[in-house]
Design a protein around this nucleic acid. Structure first.
Length: 444
RNA sequence: GCCCCCAUGGUCUAGCGGUCAGGACGCCUGCCUUUCACGCAGGAAAUCACCGGUUCGAAUCCGGUUGGGGGUACCA
């Protein structure tokens, strides 16, 4: 089995492309196949080296490696020229100066379901001669057979007048030369597959097995594309998502991997992936579900691993202890810093939180009592701190939150933080008491 | 316009002739409880787009309709 992922570097890799890459990868890795990476850069206007680098980087980040390539389509001009010459020579293709307007006029004369047929000329773009009889059938592993009556297909332009190849031609030649056995790509290519099949036939090349994946739609129900504000892999990375979660989530957009579980590692996905079980209908990207899966993958990481990622993401060091006490409270790497910044940069400013806890309902008194208890805790560790604070709760006959929340706001400035005992312990006695004293002064 | 594809709760899916239509996210309630989370126990939410047909029996098979999407470039 030889599969390929063939992005065009006309933009960043978005989640639709990432899923196509992932499915090809799962197929290759699950079946001992070979994955070929090909960069389709025949669109010289829009293809850029920066985009190529972006795509390569995104694939690396997603942990999707490949066995051959990257092969640049633009570097294969000789092969394309040779294939074009042979088609021209055999009469399977011809030059034509017909324009889009000419094609339209032709259809007005012959009926809108009648494909355009041109007359061979001595110059112009190169069109493939499509036979009028018969039909071209796309045999698709996911969708079954889609038949196109040849008479309805226009003779497609396969190369510009200067012989530079166009998509439907270059793809067929490149897939054929690379001996690709399974072409797995988005459904937006389904109609074009008929044209590529015709090129393959004219070339006398064998046809690969096709599988057209359902498209990913935005919340507006439209195809997700570079232009449609689609989430790029880079954006998800910047938003603090883990590559494990992104892989897991996008795999789910288009297939079920088990009847009652959706949390999988890349290896588990590869083991379970089946092309013929891919869904036929388009899916809508739901960031909330991604967040959920991200939280689960995050919690599955070892502390060392999580710490390393948190440090890389925040650009800070010495985060291990903070990571340890907040792992179960965050869903993405981005959630981390707002939760624990107070440990490093001092309490955050949140007057409302202060007023609600310390500034009301005996809050200051409870905080003062907590301060005294904390002053004598030995050792200054979570368990002992908890015992001391619960003692205060007991002694003052109030609900636990009446003591804990004022302490939390005194040291963190906000009502949200990792566990209070762990947070106080991590801060250390001196700093914790200093912050509480400051809060007490502020409370008057 | 023409060609092609698709149709299960708000979202992603399981289902492949007989199920109380299963799971996940989200939402709601309760438990846990120190906030937020995590975890656990429940709950609301789908006339399986619609109409015909085949069949003893249809979400599952067939046809049509409607709706959505894609293609129709000297883009990929």
């Amino acid at each position: 089995m030889r599969v390929r992922f063939a992005p065009s570097p006309t933009g960043a890799l978005h989640i639709g492309g990432a899923r196509t890459a992932l499915y090809n990868w799962l197929l290759a890795r699950g079946h001992g196949g070979t994955l070929v990476l090909r960069i389709e850069d025949t669109d010289r206007e829009r293809s850029t080296p920066e985009n190529v680098e972006q795509i390569l980087d995104a694939l690396r980040w997603l942990n999707l490696d490949y066995d051959e390539g990257p092969i640049f389509q633009s570097a294969r001009v000789d092969r394309h020229a040779a294939a074009l010459a042979s088609l021209l020579h055999a009469g399977h293709a011809y030059r034509s100066t017909a324009t889009a307007d000419d094609v339209r006029a032709y259809k007005e004369r012959h009926g809108s379901d009648r494909g355009f047929r041109g007359e061979p000329e001595s110059s112009g773009a190169v069109r493939l001669r499509v036979p009028d009889a018969g039909e071209t059938v796309v045999r698709d592993v996911i969708r079954g057979e889609a038949a196109f009556a040849n008479s309805t297909l226009d003779d497609p332009v396969i190369a510009r007048a200067d012989e530079s190849p166009l998509y439907n031609f270059a793809v067929a030649v490149d897939d054929s030369d690379a001996a690709i056995t399974h072409v797995v790509r988005g459904e937006d290519h389904l109609s074009n597959t008929a044209r590529q099949l015709l090129v393959l036939e004219a070339l006398g090349a064998p046809e690969p097995i096709y599988a057209h994946l359902p498209l990913l739609h935005g919340p507006d129900g439209r195809k997700l594309s570079k232009r449609h504000g689609a989430a790029s892999v880079q954006e998800l990375r910047d938003a603090g998502y883990l590559p494990e979660a992104v892989d897991n989530y996008i795999a789910l957009l288009g297939a079920g991997f088990a009847p009652d579980e959706e949390f999988f590692t890349l290896a588990e996905l590869a083991e379970r992936f089946r092309l013929d079980r891919v869904s036929k209908n388009p899916a809508v990207f739901d960031e909330r579900k991604l967040r959920h899966l991200d939280g689960r993958h995050l919690r599955a990481l070892t502390l060392d691993d999580l710490t390393a990622r948190l440090q890389a993401y925040t650009g800070r060091t010495g985060l291990r202890d903070a990571a340890a006490i907040s792992a179960e409270k965050i869903q993405t790497l981005a959630d981390f810093w707002p939760l624990v910044s107070f440990l490093f940069d001092g309490p955050v400013e949140d007057p409302a939180a202060f007023a609600k806890t310390i500034g009301s309902d005996g809050g200051a008194e409870n905080l003062a009592a907590a301060r005294d208890a904390l002053a004598g805790v030995q050792p200054f560790e979570p368990a002992a701190i908890e015992e001391a604070l619960r003692g205060v709760v007991q002694a003052r006959g109030v609900k636990a939150g009446k003591v804990f929340q004022p302490v939390r706001v005194a040291i963190a400035g906000q009502t949200v933080s990792p566990g209070i005992f762990e947070s106080v312990a991590l801060l250390g006695r001196d700093e914790a008491l200093a912050r509480i004293d400051r809060a007490l002064v502020a409370a008057g």
